[in-house]
């Protein structure tokens, strides 16, 4: 899939930070900028960006989510690649939007779909970076949680393979990796019991492997998982994959 991508790559991009990084995880957005700039990429940040609209889309309020999607498409108009440090928000651009605009096609929204990359997918398959020159000071076991929106995209493979090239890093497999962590955005609010149970199960499988660090390409999954872990008295150190890339480079 990624090898034959028609999406534009190149050294000039627009960053969509995502609402979650805008509100909570500023350091992930920072790491994104730092890593991309380290790779010689010029990063533009349209000030008027907000959210991809996924909360409304998943709730079934497509009138509202189309409104947000049109706004986002307008903010990111042009022909530059749009880089998103979240598999979920990226998939909203190239999958969710296509679904909700099936009956009312929109050129700007379709253009955004054709230019959107999940961040690590872009680094590996867009820029062709196959090895990461970073290192951990001591042997480090990484549990990589492949978020569900990476299914069927090149990102899961891209992240695992790039993390594996970091010196002293070991990506450890864990049980039932194909299972969802239970976040699902508004799902975690409307199905609190099932969502919590799914998260706890995921944590059981991950913690069984005693990882030093839980890594994902989606802060939403990590917010849910680490929030649960905290309340359950089993906190787990965690980072976005791009933070790992930056931090191991500085070490």
């Amino acid at each position: 899939m990624p090898a034959t991508t028609q999406r534009p790559a190149g050294k000039k991009v627009l960053l969509m930070a995502t609402c979650l990084c805008d509100a909570f995880y500023d350091d992930v957005a920072r790491a994104t900028v730092e890593v991309l700039q380290h790779l010689g990429v010029e990063v533009g940040f349209p000030e008027n960006q907000t959210c991809c609209g996924q909360p409304a889309f998943n709730s079934g309020d497509w009138k509202s989510s189309r409104k947000v999607a049109r706004h986002t498409a307008e903010v990111f108009a042009g022909d530059l690649p749009v880089i998103v440090p979240s598999g979920s928000c990226a998939a909203m651009h190239f999958h969710g939007n296509r679904l909700q605009f099936e009956e009312c096609p929109d050129g700007a929204v379709e253009s955004l779909a054709n230019r959107t990359w999940e961040l690590i997918d872009f680094i590996v398959n867009g820029l062709g970076i196959r090895e990461w020159p970073g290192r951990f000071e001591k042997p480090t076991r990484l549990a990589f949680h492949r978020s569900c929106h990476l299914r069927g995209t090149g990102s899961g493979e891209a992240i695992t393979s790039l993390l594996s090239t970091i010196a002293n890093a070991e990506v450890v497999p864990f049980g039932q990796a194909e299972q969802c962590c239970g976040f699902g955005g508004t799902f975690s609010v409307t199905f609190p019991h099932i969502s919590g149970r799914m998260g706890s199960l995921k944590l059981d499988h991950i913690l069984e492997q005693h990882p030093d660090l839980l890594v994902s390409g989606d802060m939403s999954c990590l917010m849910h998982l680490t929030g649960l872990a905290q309340v359950q008295g089993r906190p787990v150190p965690h980072k976005h994959a791009v933070q790992v890339l930056r931090d191991t480079l500085q070490a």
């Binding site: 000030e47 917010m223 309340v231």
Partner: peptide, 23 residues
């Protein structure tokens, strides 16, 4: 519903606007 959500999980610290300021 947010109360129920927060009953099971902690929420990270709100750092809205910090990235934009940094950038």
């Amino acid at each position: 519903p947010l109360q129920d959500w927060l009953g099971q999980r902690t929420l990270p610290e709100w750092r809205g606007g910090d990235f934009r300021k940094w950038l």
